[in-house]
Simulated assay, not measured.
Amino acid sequence: MTPSLPLLAVTALVAGLLGAPSPEVPPLGDVVEHVAGHASGIYWTPQRMARAVPVGLLGGTPPVLPPVVGAALPPAARSALAPGHAAQPAARTGTTQTTRTTRTTGTGRTRQAAAMPPVTTSGTRWAAGGSVTRTTGRVFLTLNGVDFSCSASAVRSANRDLVVTAGHCVKDGAGAWAENWTFVPGYDEGRQPYGGFPARRMFVAGPWSRSGNDDYDVGMVAVDDLDGQHLTDAVGGQPIGFAPPRGRRTYGFGFPADPPYDGERLLYCAGVPHGDPQGQTRDQGLRCDLTAGASGGPWLSGFDPASGRGTLTSVSSFKYSNDHRTMYGPYFGNAVRDLYRTAERA
């Protein structure tokens, strides 16, 4: 495991015990699957959602925790799971810590420029509408008895039910799988225009499941339909891409819930990502001030602000504690491709 914090924090035998696909259709590559317990329809009340703790982005010295919370979690992950801890992250131990308009007149050009969102920003509310406001949403989950929130995106898939988020928003590394996992697309200031879609099957890459390796901090969840309607039939889905060129302009979206944010609105960062200067991961870093709760939010390249569409090429994963201005996201290579190909047929 790389010594960075995830934002939450094995083999084929364990995958089988947890409900892997039948032997006739084995998983592609090193993929671990879990059959999700269904979230109660009344579990995620507005009050519970408001109290959910945003998953932290930084590691540090683990605080004193009740045994049930700390059980089976590595020290870095324990520090992130403490309720309220993410709002005041400690230094990570053992690292150096890290609408389109027709142009007619000069006045028209000024108005158009003012209406378009910035193409470079470290944190701005997304007010341009488009597909991204429907496909991006909040995730609510319970891990080791604590209710948390993350961010995620609906993606195009064969089953029309697939959500992509961070691995730590699905499984705590080598520890527990999330329970009560529900995706709320289009969330906005408490409004849930499409309702909540509960998980039915969860997937992570083997290296994440065995050791919380940050290079593989990606989770995919096949959700139940809602009132007979598949997720992407209701909200659409962003396409997903693999082995993308590095250093392409990227827009990262999410629902940060630590101050100065409250998790109620969709925000974004945009810029050109770079490699990990710490050399600890193969991830790319994006200048981004979004805080805890943005974990798992989609990174879209080739993004069109007018339509709100792009290609999903990473998700928000972690920050180094000596660099709160940079968000890191895993590179979508062959392992993530195999994860997707397995999850989309669930």
Rank of each mutant, 00 (worst) to 15 (best):
P6A: 13
P6D: 12
L8S: 11
A15I: 00
P23K: 00
E24I: 07
P26V: 14
G29A: 06
G29E: 07
V32T: 12
H34R: 15
Y43F: 14
Y43V: 03
P46V: 11
A52F: 09
L57K: 02
T61C: 01
P62R: 14
R78G: 04
A80H: 04
A91K: 08
T96M: 08
T99V: 09
T102D: 13
T102L: 13
R111Q: 12
Q112I: 07
S122W: 08
G123W: 13
S131C: 02
S131P: 01
T133F: 07
F148W: 11
S149Y: 01
C150F: 06
A158S: 12
R160Y: 05
V163S: 05
K171N: 12
K171E: 11
G175L: 07
A176W: 10
W177G: 08
N180V: 00
N180D: 15
T182E: 13
P185Q: 03
G186Y: 09
R191A: 15
Y194N: 07
P198G: 07
G206M: 14
P207V: 12
D215E: 11
G219S: 14
M220A: 10
A222H: 03
D224P: 02
D225T: 13
L226S: 02
D227I: 00
D233C: 01
D233W: 06
A234N: 02
V235I: 11
G236Q: 10
G241N: 02
F242N: 07
F242V: 09
R246T: 10
R249Q: 11
G254K: 06
G254A: 03
D262W: 09
D262Y: 04
E264C: 01
R265D: 11
A270S: 13
A270G: 02
D276N: 12
P277N: 08
Q278D: 15
G279E: 08
D283I: 00
Q284F: 03
Q284L: 04
L286C: 10
C288H: 08
D289K: 06
D289R: 14
L290C: 04
A294N: 10
G296E: 05
W299Q: 08
F303Q: 01
D304K: 03
S316Q: 09
S317P: 05
Y320F: 09
Y320I: 01
H324D: 06
M327N: 15
L339R: 01
